[in-house]
Amino acid sequence: MSDTQSRDDASQNMDESVTEQTHFGFKQVDKSQKASLVANVFDSVAAKYDVMNDLMSFGVHRLWKRYTIDCAGVRAGHRVLDIAGGTGDLTAKFSRLVGPTGSVTLADINLSMLKVGRDKLRDQGLVSNIDYVQADAEALPFPDNSFDVVTMAFGLRNVTEKQNALNSIYRVLKPGGRLLVLEFSKPASEHLSKIYDMYSFHILPRMGQMVASDAESYRYLAESIRMHPDQETLKGMFEQAGFEQCDYSNLTGGIVALHRGYKF
């Protein structure tokens, strides 16, 4: 093969990777851009993230997260990875449940969110058994078979290649370990779906504008939820990654779903 031909092939591959598209909300963007676009969203909302969560969900997000913790089966001495842990809602509880003999790793790709989470947890006096790692869920920087439990709450829909993230999580889970993904999903009822659409496309951006001075980020939130795989599709992706005994629970009529899978 000549040098010229090699350069042409490389150039063609490069062109293909540049033109490979993915969704960012309802927009189609270059795959390589999505991570930075998502990062911009979370840089923008990090400071008001907790307040907005309470406002948008009327506080119900706390119950969704509590249910996730109940289902996690975390015990003293466990090693827990909280991916896209954001402001540390799950990590705070896990830190107390695993006790001094266990550890919790709060991982987030976004440094702003990680800093807000770290400050919040330190203010609560939770310092001894929590590590903070800026990490991409698609390429987790941990050895194989490292964690007993991995959770990801409201993070998977922002990942560019969701299947890569699930594969990566499968790799770092110990045999016998479990993954829990809490994420917005598809409402089970048509009526609820219509009300939910109206709320998320008309009211949510206005709330974002009023509280966080950022309507665009909350418009992205609504759009990204619609683009996220529904319950059965995500369950299939779990199985494709190698997880077993996969199931899900619909919460609040399917607005949110908790998916579970085990690595054996």
Partner: peptide, 10 residues
């Protein structure tokens, strides 16, 4: 929504 979560939270 699991009622148990609301109960345990309270």
């Amino acid at each position: 929504m699991p009622a148990a979560s609301l109960f345990t939270a309270t």
